[in-house]
């Protein structure tokens, strides 16, 4: 495993930790899109179908369990915790995420490497992950005061796939059997590009020492 991939995974982990910290310590999920969280849970379920059958490394297995467990605990907090669920801003979270699921499933059925259940579900998870942040980005734009933890959560999440792209370039250059990954690369590129606007305002607010606010 190269440093880019590892740093990417750590960013991903950090984003989840930051979000859980906000929810657990502040007992608040204000500004967080439940729809994005539902999409991520679905992404992890579909991608990690092989969790008990396809062993790659202890690291991989543990990370898979951590991502699945954290995704479900976030959903539990936002939907069932008596204090946290009151802070969920349902009216601002209006993205029609079922359309994303449907579109990604159709695309996965049409464009994939291999037509097997496992492979199509994996491809679906790759497509869905690329766009899963959209409900969250829409919600951020509507929120006037984005708190630091929420801003950092989205920032770490965006950095994660950015680092994965460097990992792909590195692996492409150093590994002989590392090709035919274009499907992942295109999706990963789109996923990272979606954050471009957010990154711009995040860095700007950080440099000017101002509170993060996205233009409407």
């Amino acid at each position: 495993m190269n440093i880019f991939r590892f740093a990417g995974d750590m960013m991903h982990l950090l984003s989840v930790v930051v979000l859980l910290l906000k929810i657990h310590k502040m007992k608040s999920c204000a500004g967080i899109s439940l729809k994005t969280q539902e999409l991520y849970a679905l992404v992890f379920i579909c991608r990690y179908l092989d969790i008990f059958t396809g062993f790659i490394s202890l690291y991989n297995t543990i990370m898979k369990i951590v991502f699945l467990a954290s995704a479900f605990s976030i959903l539990w907090y936002m939907r069932s915790h008596k204090v946290v669920r009151q802070t969920y801003d349902k009216d601002q979270d209006t993205f029609r995420h079922y359309f994303l699921i449907l579109a990604c499933m159709v695309l996965a059925l049409l464009v994939h490497h291999k037509f097997t259940f496992r492979e199509v579900m994996w491809t679906f998870s790759i497509y869905l992950e690329a766009v899963a942040i959209l409900p969250q980005l829409v919600m951020l734009q509507r929120t006037r005061n984005i708190d630091n933890l929420t801003g950092n959560y989205v920032f770490f999440l965006g950095t994660y796939r950015g680092l994965y792209m460097l990992n792909w370039v590195y692996r492409y250059l150093t590994e002989v059997h590392y090709h035919h990954r274009w499907l992942t690369w295109i999706s990963g590129f789109i996923q990272t590009a979606l954050y471009a606007d957010f990154f711009y305002y995040y860095v700007k607010s950080w440099r000017n020492n101002e509170k993060l606010q996205l233009p409407a």
């Binding site: 092989d50 396809g54 991989n60 990370m63 490497h113 492979e119 994965y164 059997h177 035919h180 990954r181």
Partner: peptide, 10 residues
């Protein structure tokens, strides 16, 4: 293996 595709990333 077909395409050498092994999902070793997270």
């Amino acid at each position: 293996r077909n395409l050498g595709e092994k999902h070793d990333e997270l």
